[in-house]
Design a protein around this nucleic acid. Structure first.
Length: 174
DNA sequence: CTAACTAAACCTA
DNA sequence: TAGGTTTAGTTAG
């Protein structure tokens, strides 16, 4: 497992990756030490749930770094980087792979994602699955909101969800 | 068994 | 029509 901190306008982002792609990408913290601790914790809590879903893919770390910097400067950037999918159950992977496709600036609802993966009543389960996301920003679970237009939830706190959506042009969000 | 990042179908008045 | 209740689906502790 490779680890590194990325310094952006929002703070230090912890990143961890393997030969298969990103395993962890945290939200930024102002304090370097805290960011490192958070990264170490996240990595030590990783559990392989589906071996066989980790084809080798090369991560361009320098590209990731420069794009994240731009992202926190408010630029519209695409964050498509390889993901190490081996830390998720089949269901979680289906959900997250769908969420991965939601582009910068766009939103989708838990119910929509549920229908698109063939589990029309699974909206609540989708909420659980996006909550298991370890690769924030690159797998944009913050772009998934409730069907009635309200925010829904967010593991790292709704303030963060608002902040991220604000960066993506959804400033007038409740 | 329950709680957790939901939503739609069903009452009921 | 508005508002309350029930149910569905997945996972971790």
């Amino acid at each position: 497992m490779n680890k590194a901190l990325i310094h952006t306008a929002g703070g230090y982002i912890g990143a961890a990756w393997t030969k298969s792609g990103l395993a962890v990408l945290n939200l930024p913290l102002a304090d370097v030490v805290e960011a490192q601790t958070k990264l170490d914790d996240a990595v030590s809590n990783l559990k392989v749930k589906s071996p066989g879903n980790n084809p080798e893919q090369v991560l361009d770390f320098l590209d990731l770094e420069s794009r994240l910097k731009k992202y926190f400067q408010g630029e519209r950037v695409e964050l498509s980087f390889p993901i190490d999918w081996s830390y998720y159950t089949d269901f979680q992977r289906q959900v997250l792979q769908r969420v991965y496709l939601v582009p910068w600036g766009q939103l989708a609802s838990y119910g929509q994602v549920a229908r698109e993966i063939g589990s029309p009543r699974g909206s609540r389960a989708v909420g659980g699955a996006v909550g298991a996301n370890q690769v924030l920003l690159v797998i944009p679970c913050h772009r998934i909101i409730a069907g009635d237009g309200t925010l829904g939830g967010f593991g790292s706190g709704l303030d963060w969800k608002r902040k991220l959506l604000c960066l993506e042009g959804h400033g007038n969000y409740k």
